[in-house]
């Protein structure tokens, strides 16, 4: 009997030791609630341009403020005319126009004139503009300056690299570092890798519209800077649709100025 009791105690003590060792090795389970709950970003008063937008008037050829032709150097005006002729010739896509053929990003400012909706998302330190067309993503860094010219030349993006800041109720976005084989508009306007674009975004008409004033600086192809302007309707009713190249997309016949090829 005594031996049975001793044996039971020995077994129990062995089990306790093993359990204690097991507890020491097992990782503590992660607590269910994180230490700092997430806080949604709240833009400052007058600096909320988030939402969904759709262009009011579409024009295939970008319209410089004050009218007239784009101030191209002669050799680039010749190239522009060549593209315009090819684009106007048929509904087929010209080989140079990768944005329409392969749905690569349109570049800036061409993407601003497109007849499909887009959305602006403001979060801490950054603004994203997500375009339905070609599922283009633009990132505007709000807490970093634009990279230097060498970086922009070495790592160009279709949509360029963008840095933004607020001046009152106006978001100012500076963009550089573009791939030089995009067009400036849908009529085939060329540019160089020296392109720098400044956009000014602000709500107008009691917040029902968004205005974007664009300044184009490209001494590689132009004799002078020039500017243009786009206006969009605020459309909180919209959902941005997914875009797969070559498939049927949203009906845009209702957008003023759009001509849908047969």
């Amino acid at each position: 009997m005594k031996r049975i009791g001793l044996l039971a105690a020995l077994v129990a003590l062995t089990a306790i030791s093993a359990w204690a060792a097991d507890q020491a090795a097992a990782p503590a389970p992660a607590p269910a609630t994180p230490a700092a709950p997430f806080q949604f970003f709240k833009p400052a008063a007058g600096q909320d341009i988030s939402g969904k937008y759709w262009i009011k008037y579409y024009s295939a050829k970008i319209q410089p403020t004050g009218g007239g032709e784009l101030p191209y150097k002669p050799e680039f005006m010749e190239l522009y005319r060549k593209h315009q002729t090819a684009v106007a010739a048929s509904a087929e896509i010209i080989p140079e126009d990768q944005a329409r053929k392969l749905c690569t990003p349109d570049g800036v400012p061409r993407v601003l004139q497109n007849p499909y909706p887009f959305e602006i998302i403001q979060t801490e330190g950054q603004i994203h503009i997500l375009y339905e067309l070609n599922k283009i993503i633009r990132l505007i860094k709000m807490d970093e300056p634009l990279p230097d010219d060498m970086y922009l030349l070495t790592f160009p993006y279709y949509s360029g690299h963008s840095a933004g800041r607020w001046e009152g109720d106006t978001l100012i976005v500076q963009t550089g570092g573009f791939k030089d084989y995009t067009f400036l508009d849908n009529s085939g306007a060329p540019h160089s890798d020296q392109l720098r674009v400044t956009e000014r975004y602000r709500k107008i008409n009691d917040g029902k519209e968004l205005e974007v004033v664009v300044n184009i600086h490209d001494p590689g192809v132009f004799t002078a800077d020039w500017s243009t302007r786009f206006v969009y309707d605020s459309r909180p009713d919209l959902k941005i649709m997914y875009w797969n190249c070559g498939e049927t997309h949203r009906d845009i016949k209702g957008v003023a100025g759009v001509v849908v090829p047969n």
Partner: peptide, 26 residues
């Protein structure tokens, strides 16, 4: 993804083509 999508080593009939468009939407 769609840039530089030409394939030089695999016969075209063995690959699903990358999405592309032949006609403009606008």
């Amino acid at each position: 993804c769609n840039e530089n999508s030409e394939e030089f080593f695999i016969p075209a009939d063995q690959l699903v083509p990358v999405p592309s468009a032949t006609k403009r939407d606008f």
